[in-house]
Every structure is written in structure tokens, then in C-alpha cells.
Write a protein that binds this DNA or RNA. Structure first.
Lengths: 200, 200, 200, 200
DNA sequence: CATGAATGAGGTTTCATTCAT
DNA sequence: AATGAATGAAACCTCATTCAT
């Protein structure tokens, strides 16, 4: 039972930290803020985390880990479109269920410091690589013109999703709700998207 | 002529600050760093700027101001496509000519604090509004299906450009160069892009 | 028998603490360190000792108590030299058998804080008093010139022993071993030592 | 003139710190204490010193530096006794003129931490080496029996001086005053001291 | 007796900003 | 206009001690 309690304390700190990081940003969030919100003493935080940065890293790692656990690599034989849609839906699912973490990932985490930037870059690089892989398969099949720059296309797709997630997570007067995106994700048509950057 | 000298001093501080902000991020950049690089005493900085934040704000304002000065609103009668392309080229021009500021805009500035987030949101909102306006015109003309969510489409386009600019500005082993984007910008075909999110 | 077990637990904590205090010093030694080494929970320590300082005080008191228990006051009739030598040997014995405590006494304990300094001063004062007493007896007997400052002489003797014990306890590459000192202690000749500070 | 002022500020901090370190010990002395006493703001301290430890190190280095600057190596041809006495007097001079630093050297500094202990050991090792060198010369000349352990003798001499300096610096009710020691230093007779540890 | 999770006072250090020169 | 020494608020983090189990 103790381990359960310990786990819950840790989780409690994490979720409160996520809320505040999302709201105020990493630097503007003080350990005090996290203490107050999670109703925990200063020292207690340091029983579960090495330092403020460790809390942040843990949040990001959990989130990115979730993303990659839910994305499945392409099965060569199977049709590409439904696989792609399944993965899109998975990502959109995780995003919509973790608004705080999404906000952190797309805004608070950016430009934190050189070391963290590196981690973030690796994450997106992996994501882009995944998309690029799928597009390359299509290009080989002749579904995409050989003149299309698939890497650029992959960045564009990831960027488009990031921006929409960002706007949604901002919560700025509910400018945007996620429903259209969710629908879009389910019906997403690669062929259409390919046309985006056109042929070069 | 004194004012010229003063202006140049101011410019000198600004460009040095831009370089360091781009490299280390807002928080990791100290006033000391800016002093050393611009070869100016600490107190002098405060003759030209209210505080550290003021330097940053000025940089951002200059950059976003440049962007909007170069974008021209649509002339109703004229064909949409060439107008759109001219604007795209203008934006890409500014981006490629100000790598430091681009980096700051797309990464250091994000998640800085609640107040700044607001400014950034306004900037992108204005950009999105511009794009949305253009798309709406097309939709009215019947060029775009009435089922397309033009706002979502606008976010997607802005996000795609942001991500590509971000990757380029990161300078991470020169993964990306701007040339293809520049070309794409010149040949950008709205009709193709519309297909992106498909019909909903 | 419970008391035996309790006693052994107490002793266990004490000896582990002595080892760590000797190695790392009072301030650098944390309660955690003592817990880990003595395989006892944090709270348990506070069943046997009031606080960290109490552990330290106990160690010092045990050591200084041992010293004084083994030193016998001078029997007036008996010859001074053999009595002095017996006491010297006793002290050297305790020192050589408790390297950790010796280290603590001569280095970690010094300058701990104002209150503890007082205790330490009292201990050395008592030691010096003992030596001074012996020397005074000799002086009265006419064995020492009346011009000799016996208190200074006493300090010198105690200081000499302390320094040698300190160097031995430091363990720095075994610069020194205790054997010569032990031999010297057995053959120590007061008359010779008297010459140390000379006549004033 | 500025450099003079700066130097004086530094000196001011150093002397105040010495006073407090001597009184309360290194760990019990807080940066706040030093600020209050030297009437300087917290941050100012860090303009002149890297951290608290740096202040302490500087004090110790100044003191030990002074000692070695005032000790002159033996000139082979010249008589040993007057040279030895001159050096003794020099050391006693520095000690008597820097009570705070003496207290720090002989008590606060001992057992501070492993790294500092090393520095202290090196200092005393150098001092002992100096004394040992002198004694060895005498031993070669046949002035000291070949059976005498000169290293032990050297430790004893250094220890005796340390202890006397310690007792003097403690200030505990003026138990001791330095005058006798100063006199002794001037008249110090090596030949007499040699008898201290006797022959082994 | 024993535990170890929780506490929170208190320390060091940083750095944007000021102001006398 | 320019300087840079001085400031002090505010942050992070440690660790001796407590107390419910």
C-alpha cells in the first residue's frame, strides 16, 4: 500500500507541476508555486525529484514516451492510408487528453536551454522521420511524384499539427476546438496532403 | 548627428542582443552577456532600454513590424494567386535575411511568459487572419468547397511555414536549407494546398 | 536482556558514527550517512540520541572519560618518573587503540562551534593541569629551576603529543607510525623535556 | 584611485570575515554575518569572492604566505642557532599580530573538509620539513645523536608552538599571554630541545 | 521498539537594476 | 552620455528532526 501512496504523491506533484508549467512557463514557475498547488512541503518535492528540471524532464519524457508507444510502425503489406490514420488518431488522442502537457511540449519547452532543445529536436526528428518514411514508401510506389521533397513535406505536416495543437492548448478564449481536427485526423487523406508543397 | 550616433549605439545593442538571445535563449542571456558583446557598460544599456525585457520586445516588434509592412492586403479585383505568392515571398525573404530573429520568434519567444505569449498570439492571429481572409474570398468565389474549415487550413499553413523556418534556424548540422522553401514559396499553389485538410 | 540489545544498537550507531565523523568531519557527515552505515532507520537514531550533536558529544565524552579513567593522580611518596611514564603509556595506548576517535578529537572537533570549543578547552585544560601539577612538584623539589614557566612547558608537552597523534591519525600515506612514540613514551625522561623551553 | 578603493573594500570584507570565522567557526558563519559586520550588501561579497569558501581560502593563503615569506632558508656557513631564532621570532611575530587568523589556522581550519585538510597538511608538512632540515644538519654535524628521530622531534616542536598559539588565541579568560613565548622564542636553545624526545 | 515519508527553516548564490561619479 | 560598483530580492536546495503507522 505504501508504494501506491508514494506513487500517488509523485503523480500528484507531476500533475500540479504540469498545470503550472503550462500556465506560467518553466522559468516563471517556482518550486514554491508547485508546493502550494500540490499542498506539499518544499523538501518533499526533493524526495521524488532531483531538482526542478527533473520534474520538467519527467513530464516531457512521459508525454513523448506515450506518443511513441501509441504509434505503430508501418506494416509493409497492409494499405498505408488506414495505418496512417490510426497513428494520426492516436497522436490526436494523446494531445486532446493532455492539454497541459501539449501546451508545455509546443510552447514552454521550446527554447528552454541548449540541452533541452536538443532533446526536443530529437523528438521531432523522430516524428518527422516516421512521416518521411511513410511518404518515401508512397514515392517509391509512384503515388508521389519524384520531384516532391518528402522531408519538407514531412516538416510541413508535423508543423501544421503542432500549430493547431498550440492554438488549441493556448485556451485563448476558445478560439479553436479540437473536434474538427479530430474529424480531419480520421479522414486524413495523404494524397491530398501531398499536393501541399506542390512539385518543385 | 548626435542622434545618429545614439541610434547606432542603440542598433549595436539590439543586434548583439539578437545574436545572444538566438543562441542562448532569453533567460540564459544575461545583461552582462549583452554588455560584453556590444562593448557597452551596464548602465548604458539602461539609457536606451527600460529593461532587459524591453530589448527583447523591441527586437520582436521590429521583426513583426517588418513582416506586416511587407505584406500587402489583397486588392479585390486582381488575381489572388500572384498576390498571395508575392506575400509569401516577402515573408520568406525577411525570414532568410534575419536568421537570429527568426530563431527568436519561433523558439526563444515561445512560452516566455503569459504577457509575452499574448503578444505572440496576437501576431500569429493577425497572420492567420490574413490567410483566412484570402481563403474565405476563394471559398466565396466557389474555388474552395464550402465544407472546408478555412481557419483550420490557415493555421495549418502558418504552422507549416513556422516549422520549416524553425528547423532551418536551428542550424542543427544544416539539416535543411531554405532554397527549396523559397522556390516553393514562389510557385505556391493555393488550390493544391486547399486539399490539405480535405473536406470535413 | 532487552537493555543488552538496546545497548548493542546504541554501540553500533556510535561506532559507525565515529568512523564517518573521522573520515568526513562533523558537518559533512549527515544523519543519512550514519543510517546507511549502521543499517538503522532515521527515526531509530532519535530513540537513542537527542540529536546529531548528541552522538558526537557522546563519542567525545567516552573518549575523554577513558583517558581520565586511565590516568592516575600522583602518589606523593612514590618516585615521579615511573608514575609519569605509566600515565604517558596509558594515554598513548588509548590513542593507538581508537584511531577514529583520536582523529575526531584532534581535528574534527576543533573549531566545531563556540559551545563545543569550550568543552574541548576544558578537557585540555584538565590535561594540562595534570602535567602542570607534576612539573610543579618537581619544581618544588628543586628538580626544575624556579625560572621555568611550568604552564608553558605543560602546554608544550600536550601540544607535542597532540601533533604527533594528529599526524598519525591523518593516515596520509602512512607518513608516521606510532611505534617510535610508544617507545618514547615508555622511556620519556622528564628532566630532558624540561630543557625544552629553557629557562626564562 | 578606484583600484585603491576596490582593494580597501576587499580588505574590509576579509578582515571582517576573519573576525567572525575566528569567533564562530567556518560553518556557523553565514554570508549574512559577514555582510552585517562589514556593512556591505550580499551581492557585493560576490563581486570580490567566488563564494564563501573563497573568502576563507584567501585568508588562509594570505596567512601562510606571510609565514613563508618571513622564514628564510638556512645559510650553510652561518651559525644555526641565530638563524633558527630569527625564524622563530618571525613566526611568533606574525602569530601575535594576527590573532584572528591564528585562531582560524589552528582551530577553525582543522577538519573543515577533505580538500582543505589536504592544504593544511601541506602547510604543516612544509613547516615540519623546514625544521627537520635544520635538525638533520645538526645531526650530521654530530650535534644530535644519530639515534634521535628528527622527524618526530620536528613534529613535536611544531605541535608545541601550535598548542601555545592555540591557547593564546582562544582568549578564554586570558589564561595565557604571549610574552613568555616571545621571550622563549628569542632565547630558544635547540640543544635543549633536542633532549625532548630523548634518544630512542 | 522501529520505521521512513514528510517537513520547513535557513543557507548560498544569481543577476536585473540603480545611482553616484 | 557613459560608467560599473553596489544593491537586495528572490530563487533553489539541503538536511536535521518529527510523527503517524
Amino acid at each position: 500500500m505504501r508504494s501506491v501512496k508514494k506513487e500517488s504523491r509523485r503523480e500528484q506533484i507531476l500533475s500540479c507541476a504540469a498545470r503550472i508549467f503550462a500556465k506560467k512557463g518553466y522559468h516563471a514557475t517556482s518550486i514554491s508555486d508547485i508546493c502550494k498547488r500540490s499542498d506539499v512541503a518544499r523538501g518533499t518535492i526533493y524526495l521524488y525529484f532531483k531538482n526542478k528540471r527533473d520534474i520538467f524532464d519527467t513530464l516531457i519524457k512521459n508525454f513523448t514516451g506515450d506518443i511513441f508507444r501509441r504509434i505503430s510502425v508501418f506494416t509493409p503489406g497492409e494499405a498505408l492510408q488506414p495505418q496512417f490514420n490510426r497513428n494520426m488518431c492516436a497522436v490526436v488522442d494523446i494531445i486532446t487528453q493532455n492539454k497541459d502537457l501539449t501546451k508545455i511540449m509546443v510552447s514552454e519547452a521550446v527554447g528552454l536551454d541548449a540541452e533541452f532543445d536538443h532533446q526536443l529536436i530529437l523528438f521531432y526528428a523522430r516524428l518527422v522521420e516516421y512521416v518521411e518514411g511513410a511518404l518515401t514508401m508512397l514515392q517509391k510506389n509512384g503515388d508521389i511524384s519524384k520531384h516532391v521533397n518528402v522531408r519538407l513535406l514531412a516538416y510541413a505536416l508535423v508543423g501544421a499539427i503542432k500549430e493547431i495543437a498550440y492554438q488549441w492548448a493556448l485556451d485563448g478564449g476558445n478560439v479553436l476546438d479540437m473536434d474538427p481536427l479530430i474529424k480531419t485526423a480520421r479522414q486524413f487523406n495523404i494524397q491530398n496532403f501531398i499536393a501541399f508543397t506542390g512539385e518543385s
